[in-house]
Design a protein around this nucleic acid. Structure first.
Length: 264
DNA sequence: AGTACCACCTGACGGC
DNA sequence: TGCCGTCAGGTGGTAC
């Protein structure tokens, strides 16, 4: 699930539920999810502290604690959050659970264990250390063009590379290339400024749309690719059968008629 | 710098 | 019903 729009919705959910309450307990359901962090350390950072504010960069969600440090949540391929009151509602794959003084709990869920929970002292330094590029939603055109005018390789690989820009994954890269009518294997160095600008505009548009519909698949506009990603899928615009190929080792859907721009 | 693999995990689904 | 292969929206490492 979680690419930038999903994580933005997690942030909004977190802000609406789990801030400003004293943490009274921390439960770790599977310590493998903790990165360079012991269960005891997570507990001592959390207990008697409060979640104060959240900050998202790409697919990373930082939650600042009143104790000073921040909890970093990364959701991998199957992460989620759930705020609930009764233990009957505890989700099956809750890997970390924070309990608050109002009796509610916040569960960090990860089915496939690909996510991570860490403690970071300085989120800006963490982004630098991890070599993360600028956030795809907040970056401006000057930044985007400065990066892409010097990039080489396939456009899909470039957009997926978190050190180039942070936040896009397989689903939304396919979606934006579809709307920009650019073939996923197009070489970035073959694209002119107008095409790169189209890429930028479309990227902003599809991220904002996904956030507006709160990533509910059924609420995406009819001309979006997202609900047609299957082997029998047809193009929502021209009805031609979609192509399914591997690009940068990832399953890629595109319309061979609408996405003609291709130079290898 | 870019790409092609492999690995990390669990669960859902289709075929037999 | 059960077993098995395949696939899944992420990331990190290694080798070329």
């Amino acid at each position: 699930m979680p690419e930038l729009p999903d994580v933005e919705i997690f942030k909004q959910y977190f802000d609406a539920t789990a801030l400003h309450q004293t943490i009274t307990a921390v439960y770790v359901g599977d310590h493998r999810i903790l990165q360079d962090l012991s269960e005891n350390d997570l507990r001592s950072y959390s207990l008697d502290s409060k979640f104060e504010s959240t900050f998202r960069h790409g697919k990373n969600l930082f939650v600042h604690l009143t104790s000073g440090a921040a909890v970093l949540l990364h959701f991998g391929m199957s992460g989620d959050l759930k705020y609930y009151q009764h233990s009957d509602d505890q989700p099956k794959h809750a890997r970390v659970i924070w309990t608050f003084d109002n009796g509610f709990h916040l569960a960090y869920i990860s089915i496939r264990m690909f996510g991570k929970v860490a403690i970071v002292q300085n989120s800006a330094a963490y982004l630098t250390d991890q070599h993360l590029g600028p956030d795809a939603l907040s970056m401006d055109w000057q930044q985007f063009f400065a990066i892409f005018k010097n990039k080489r390789g396939m456009v899909k690989s470039a957009l997926m590379d978190q050190s180039t820009l942070a936040g896009l994954g397989n689903i939304y890269v396919d979606e934006l290339l579809f709307h920009a009518q650019i073939h996923p294997e197009t070489s970035v160095e073959e694209m002119n400024e107008a095409e790169i600008h189209e890429l930028f505009k479309t990227m902003k548009s599809i991220i904002n749309t996904a956030i507006d519909v709160r990533v509910n698949f059924e609420d995406f506009p009819d001309d979006y690719l997202i609900n047609h990603r299957d082997k029998q899928g047809t193009c929502p615009i021209c009805s031609k059968d979609l192509e399914r190929i591997q690009v940068a080792s990832r399953t890629t859907y595109y319309c061979p008629q609408c996405q003609m721009k291709m130079k290898k």
